[in-house]
Structure formats: structure tokens, C-alpha cells
Simulated scan of single mutants.
Amino acid sequence: MNNKEAIMTFRTARAVHIFAFSALIMLMGTVSYAQQTPNQTAERIMAVVNDDIITTSEFSERVHMVMETSNLPKNPEVARQIGPQILDAMVDEKLQLQEAKRLGLDVSDAEVNDGLKQIATKNKMELPDFAQMLKKEGISAYTLAQQVKAQIAWTKVIQQRIRPRIDITDSDIDARIKRLQDLAGKDEYLIAEIFLPFDEEQSEDDIRGLAQNLYDQLVSGKAGFPMLAQQFSKGAGADQGGVIGWVQEGQVAATIEAALKQAEAGNLLAPIETDLGYHIVYLRDKREIEYDPETTNMLVLRAEIGNDIGNERLDSRARRYLRDLRSTAFIEYRA
């Protein structure tokens, strides 16, 4: 099996698992799960986030969900490796929900149900079948509901606070076109990425081990790239399944660029270490940059470039917004 087949492709990876972590909730109909709570037995506090808490049962249920939907090896060592990423993600969700509340942005059960219906349709499943799959895998509806609610809330925050402030000038587009002219004849790469940064909470060995585990699952075909990226990546495009888009010379780390030059379209690159962390890169496509002002439809090109710049800035500013929320929040890890 080659790498392209092993990744199961972006379009045909086992659909249930591609979307399982990021959007599967409340599949028992239109019942509200907002009032349900996880098992309160022997409850302890894992983390305090301003006026909210994350409990041990919430954390354990999330770990279970991640391991089920990502098909990672179910052993204590892997659970230990992924624990810090999961707890950080749960802290981010608390901050996202708090910011939405501060701005008066609510997420209704109806909105979540509508989103679920769309996802079930994309996965060619009816809601009852979806619900049965969740039940079989022991995935908590409450855990999923909280995650999806945070995602919807954060989208609303971005739409209100960031998108109106994205400004793209003619000079921005002209500079990007000039770059295309300079790079004409060289290769560019359509990539997706899972980025695991170095941090103070985890040893480098743990991050390397997690990167290798994720890579192994992708190569074996047991998990899809988009789902793992949504779950684990801390890089640009994580919410879109790790998709970065087309990159050219000088836009990625030298070690990544060197590996891309040797790879073929459809290849999954083994974890690459940079100064920032580990990168698992999927080379979706590769082509020679072509630019001929005599034959290029400039109106179309300028529109495409403007859209690319806008998406890049939106993603960058959304991540900066979340970092700012973290820097001003009271966050205490207790267990």
C-alpha cells in the first residue's frame, strides 16, 4: 500500500471517523444535552479556567473519545502522550465559550442539531445510525456536545470580531503576483500538516513519540489525516483538517522544503523536526508554477489571491486572538 492509499485520501477516508471528533453530537434526535453532565463519581478538578473548571471525568471521557476516533493504540503510554494536548484543547474551548458569552453570542441546541444533520448527510448516514455508532464506541454525547458548542461559538466570535477587520489592498495582491513572476518555473506544493509544537508541559521525547504514533496510524490506514489534524495539530489550518494550501520556496522550514522536493504527490512525509516542533506533512499535489501575463486571466487570478490572503490572515488573527485570551486568563492545572 502506498502512502496515498494509506491516508485513505481527503475525500474517501472512512467518513464517520474523519468527522467523528470534530462534529458528532446529540445524535439521539433533538434532545438537549446542554443540561446533562458527566458521571460525578469520585470527581476531581483537572484545571480551573477563570470561573470554569474541567473535571477528571470530563477529561477521561475526552481521552476515550480521542483514542476511539483516532484509532490510536489503547494503552497507558499513548494516553499519557496525548493527555497534555487534550487538556490544552479543553482549556481553549472553555475560553472560547467564555468569550462568546461575554460578547452575547449564544449557541442554541437547534444550531447544533442543524450542524449535525449536515454532517450526517456528508457521511451518508441517517441520525439514528450515527447514534448507534456513537453508542457502540462508548462516546459520550455530553463530551461531544460541549466540543461542538465551543466550535460553533468560536466561529461566531471570529465572524463578529475578526472578519470585519480583515483588509486586503491592491498592494497586497500585487506583491503576491510579483512573487509568482519571480518563482515561475519552480515547483509549488499543495500540503496539509499536523504540527506538534515543543512546549514546557511535555518532554521532547513525548512529542516525538506522539508524532510517530500519529504517523503510524496514517500509514496503516486506521485513521484519516483531516480528523487527526483537527484533533492534534496546533498549526494553521487545523480546523480545516490541516490544509495549508499551496506553498512555494521559502514559505516553509528548510527541512520541510527539502523533503517536499524529494517527494511525489500523494506522499505522506515521516515526522520532520524543526526548531518549533514536529511536522507530519501530506503532499497532496505538486506542480510547476506558471505565470504568463499574456494568457493569464488577471481578474480571476487577483480574486483567487485576495481570497487566499484573506483566509491566511483570518486564521492567523484567530489563533492570535486565542493566545491573547490565554495570556489574560486565570488558568490553573491541578491534576
Rank of each mutant, 00 (worst) to 15 (best):
I119K: 13
A120L: 05
A120T: 04
T121D: 13
T121H: 11
T121N: 14
K122M: 09
N123F: 15
N123S: 15
N123Q: 13
E126S: 12
L127V: 09
L127S: 01
A131D: 14
Q132W: 12
L134G: 06
K135F: 15
E137A: 12
G138A: 13
G138L: 02
A141W: 09
Y142I: 14
A145I: 08
V148M: 09
I152K: 15
A153M: 10
W154L: 03
T155C: 10
I158D: 07
I158N: 10
R165H: 07
I168T: 13
I168P: 12
T169H: 15
D170R: 09
S171P: 15
D172M: 11
D172A: 11
D172K: 12
I173H: 06
D174W: 06
D174G: 12
I177M: 04
K178R: 06
K178I: 04
L180T: 00
Q181S: 07
D182H: 05
A184T: 01
K186R: 07
Y189P: 07
L190C: 06
L190I: 05
A192R: 04
A192V: 01
A192M: 03
E193H: 05
P197V: 00
P197K: 00
F198W: 01
F198L: 05
S203M: 05
E204Y: 03
D205N: 04
D206W: 00
G209E: 05
L210S: 02
A211I: 02
Q212R: 13
Q212I: 12
N213L: 12
L214C: 06
L214S: 06
Y215G: 03
D216I: 04
V219L: 09
G224A: 08
G224K: 09
F225E: 11
F225A: 12
M227V: 05
M227L: 13
L228E: 02
Q230L: 14
F232Q: 00
A238W: 01
A238Q: 06
D239H: 11
